[in-house]
Amino acid sequence: MDLTAKAWAETGLSAAGVELGPVDLRLGYNSGVAFSVGAEAPAWLVIAVTAAITAAVAVIAWRAARHGGRAQLAALALILGGAVANFADRAADGVVTDYLHTGWWPTFNLADTAIVTGALLFAVTAWRGDAAQKRSARADAAGSSPPTDASSPSGPRDV
């Protein structure tokens, strides 16, 4: 969807853009990575770094697929989808097409939105997971863990 929107922005947006209110449509290009960091670097280097980061996210998502929760997997899917879309766009000509403009934030695109949303969701799930682990550890330390067969009221079973 993002690549389609980028293609539309390149062919359908006028130089003046379109004012919609809080988020306007304005065509822009980013030769760097987030917030134009590395914009002066050679395109091949930015493409290589983008490819390496995208590959790392893919490996993390693949490893998490077996044991991650739904929210964590959704977060990784958003991050990976956005990274792949931006990489595919950048690989063509060395720049990423941006088209969403607020006036108070750098111009961005739908893939950037997916990456940021996924990163926030991933952070929340990690924080909630840590909090749940700490609660579980405190409950175990307090002796409130459920009884096992050996410690059940009827005692261990002989089979």
Rank of each mutant, 00 (worst) to 15 (best):
A142T: 04
A126D: 01
S145Y: 15
A56C: 14
G69M: 03
S31C: 10
T107W: 01
T148Y: 07
A52I: 02
Q72V: 14
K134C: 07
A123L: 11
A55L: 14
G28H: 03
S151D: 10
L100N: 03
D140Y: 11
R63C: 00
A58K: 01
A91L: 15
A83F: 01
A132C: 07
I53R: 03
F108T: 00
R63V: 09
G155T: 06
D89Q: 02
G68T: 00
A111H: 02
I115D: 00
R66A: 14
L3S: 13
A16P: 00
G68M: 02
E40R: 13
F122M: 11
S36K: 07
G118W: 01
A119V: 06
M1K: 11
W8A: 09
T107H: 01
R157W: 12
V116M: 07
V84K: 03
T148K: 08
A83P: 02
V96I: 05
A150T: 07
G38V: 08
W104T: 09
T125G: 07
P22I: 13
A16H: 04
A91F: 07
V59M: 09
S136A: 13
R157C: 12
P153F: 06
A9W: 03
A74I: 15
T148L: 14
V95Q: 10
T113M: 10
